[in-house]
């Protein structure tokens, strides 16, 4: 009886957005009288940081600082339609809608500034610091603050824009299954190291080394939050979690956090993460959805590592100590 070390690998791809498309999201952008920008949505932030990333996308597109952008969302009386926050669609779908709305608003903003500076709008650019200037002549400039004031009080113009993003729905061909499930895919590869106690069947996840390709890390700190949390959650799926431990029998289903098992702060695997960026052609600034893709390759990597450690295959999730012990017993009697 001993603790046995094993190593496993798995690689996956993951579609961004609702399968087969047909899932629209809209955004509205307008400036306040002093050149701050309001993004109006009905999308829901579940904690992944949707509001923050939308503010950064809007700021990048218009050419202002992120703190000048306010996100007003999750209200059906004010926000235009969004299909919802699921299927790794938030950053991709809503982000594209915000870009479109922000581009339209930016165009009006530049037209107003052009009138003030008596040049063509196409000759103007933003400096990202709150000013609009003539390309190649940074001294000939007007602040966005003054531009917005002028639009509101002198020209009677609304610096605003509308955005809509829809991946047209794909209908699978009945006989062949020809279809377009997604426009872009994230990728991942995980190497897991485990210790398996062949006396108790207990698995200790020594480390997971995750490589994720997500198009573009629009806010690397928030991406890291998703990737670390997702990696933890799916290790939990692999080894601990189920509402019906003896499925298809319905007994022993956990109904609280004492009975429904998950790894606590004392059970964490050493987790390393490397992010690759291959921009998606239709992603907002190249981004794909990171939220779900990060919670997949660890399960098979762990299953393969357990086999490498003790030579038994557990083909049913979760891979509990009981299942490992039963398999070891069968292996020894064979």
């Amino acid at each position: 009886m001993a603790i046995r070390r094993g190593r496993g690998v798995a690689a996956i791809n993951y579609p961004t957005g609702m399968n087969l498309g047909g899932d629209p999201s809209q955004a509205l952008v307008h400036s306040t009288p002093t050149g701050n920008f309001m993004v109006t949505l009905s999308s829901v932030d579940l904690g992944q940081g949707l509001k923050q990333v939308m503010a950064q996308i809007c700021a990048e597109t218009i050419g202002v600082k992120t703190e000048q952008v306010i996100i007003d969302t999750a209200d059906t009386d004010t926000g235009p339609h969004c299909m919802g926050t699921f299927a790794s669609r938030g950053t991709h779908r809503i982000g594209n809608a915000v870009i479109q709305a922000a581009q339209e608003a930016r165009q009006v903003m530049l037209e107003v500034a052009a009138e003030a500076l008596e040049v063509n709008a196409s000759d103007l650019d933003t400096d990202g610091e709150g000013n609009i200037h003539v390309k190649g002549a940074p001294q000939k400039s007007i602040s966005i603050f003054d531009t917005a004031l002028m639009a509101h009080f002198k020209l009677g113009r609304s610096i605003s824009g509308r955005g809509m993003f829809l991946v047209p729905r794909s209908y699978p061909e009945v006989e062949t299954g020809a279809m377009k499930p997604s426009t872009c895919y994230a990728h991942a590869c995980t190497v897991a190291d485990v210790d398996v106690d062949d006396e108790t069947g207990e698995v200790t996840v020594v480390s997971v080394k995750n490589v994720f390709e997500i198009g573009r890390a629009l806010n690397p700190k928030m991406v890291e939050q998703q990737l670390v949390g997702g990696s933890w959650m799916v290790i939990s799926h692999a080894l601990y979690e189920t509402t019906e431990p003896y499925y298809p029998a319905r007994d022993h289903g956990g109904s609280d956090f004492n009975e429904y098992l998950m790894p606590g702060p004392g059970d964490l695997a050493e987790t390393e993460i490397v992010v690759l960026e291959r921009p998606a052609a239709d992603g907002p600034y190249g981004a794909k959805g990171p939220g779900e893709m990060c919670a997949n390759p660890q399960i098979p990597a762990l299953a393969n590592a357990i086999f490498d450690a003790v030579g038994v295959r557990i083909d049913m999730m979760p891979i509990t100590p009981e299942r490992i012990l039963r398999a070891l017993k069968e292996q020894r009697s064979a």
């Binding site: 940081g49 996308i57 990048e60 600082k65 890390a217 629009l218 806010n219």
Partner: peptide, 16 residues
């Protein structure tokens, strides 16, 4: 990739 983004690509603090 053009690594020329200003507000994006930054690990800015979450406003919430």
């Amino acid at each position: 990739r053009k690594d020329d983004l200003k507000e994006l690509g930054q690990g800015l603090q979450r406003s919430d």
